[in-house]
Design a protein around this nucleic acid. Sequence first.
DNA 1: CAGCGATGTCAACCTATGTTGGCAAACAAG
DNA 2: CTTGTTTGCCAACATAGGTTGACATCGCTG
Lengths: 211, 211
Amino acid sequence: MCWPTVVGMPLKNHPAPASAPAAADAPAPRRSDATRTAILAAARERFAADGYERATIRAIAKDARIDPSMVMRYYGSKEGLFAAVLDVDLRLPDPAAVDPHDVGRVLVSHFLDLWEENEVLTAMLRVGVTNQTGAERMQGIFRDQLSPVVQRTCPDPEQAPTRAALCASQLLGLALARYVLRIEPAVALHRQEIVAWLGPTVQRYLTAPNP
Amino acid sequence: MCWPTVVGMPLKNHPAPASAPAAADAPAPRRSDATRTAILAAARERFAADGYERATIRAIAKDARIDPSMVMRYYGSKEGLFAAVLDVDLRLPDPAAVDPHDVGRVLVSHFLDLWEENEVLTAMLRVGVTNQTGAERMQGIFRDQLSPVVQRTCPDPEQAPTRAALCASQLLGLALARYVLRIEPAVALHRQEIVAWLGPTVQRYLTAPNP
DNA sequence: CAGCGATGTCAACCTATGTTGGCAAACAAG
DNA sequence: CTTGTTTGCCAACATAGGTTGACATCGCTG
């Protein structure tokens, strides 16, 4: 019988069952890797464009030019596929490495890069809004990636969660208006305008004394 | 045969077909009005809680303690029901009536009221993110209700759309984090904290000179 | 009471979709 | 070449959900 594959380990895109004890960390490439990544890419686009429910496995499979049953074999279920898509690393900059007066602007700029480099974040937001799993994933990213960085930036570590939440509200709100709802003037904004307007806001949420 | 009812006029919750030319503006109350509003209330909650796809007509009907086919009779289709739910009036205050230095705080405060008075806005956001109709409705509200108010507040009317979009990004972002994604610290924030933090931000987006 | 529209229930249809199992072709090992 | 494994496709199942049409009931009107 073939592998029950990825079921049970949906968090990493390239599992390494290590059938032969060859190199301790070489992922033992399989012939089907191309298919796997094709599925993942198609899924990312569909989830980003349609959200969880409307992104059908059949449509994703069609985009990836394979049979729907392949999705099941390699990712176990629709939930599993979705979990594999959402393996996101924000690669946030180390606040210690940037001018303390520029943290706001740097953060905004970095987020714009993230949203525009591919559609993972759009997918996560679209799904997170109607899907429990997606919402939890976003909470996790907030907690594990944004909050710690904010903690090393703001004056009183006590307030880090609150300040991080305020930053998140502004950054997510822009993404929502610009990339998801496509509210016209938000789409029309130029990159440097966004940085110039939101940078000080985020900066204030990070470092200003309590209002 | 009974009425093809609301189909084709989904925008108002209480249509007035005026079968008898009684009073020119009395909506001619029907015996079924209770059912209609029950459906609407149940639909609002379901759409708010589950989004468009997962909010099934069957579930809504069950909540309203009626048969699914009634929903079809009174609202024509699921889309029609949804359109009826989203008849939203933000009742934004006239900016001329408030202290120009307080517009930001007043707006934030007003939005908090709106989000907490019932679940219509949550429903609209949840649906707008995955549903074209919903997104268009949000764009419409932005254009017809928020933008005009901003126009009468900000210095250069040219910039009104941009400034309105910035305000929307912050207000929607907070709602997203607090009421939809339920990011913990955003939920924990007290009302006056939100007003104190976001008020100045919105104020700046409205009236500050170009950054 | 008879007739009629409005209101409500029930059962069924039809499509879309997640999911499963069997089978064929490609490929690697012996 | 033979055998076992991997990769892929196809057909089918089961279910859920929007939608429809037939029928019962109620309340009003003549």
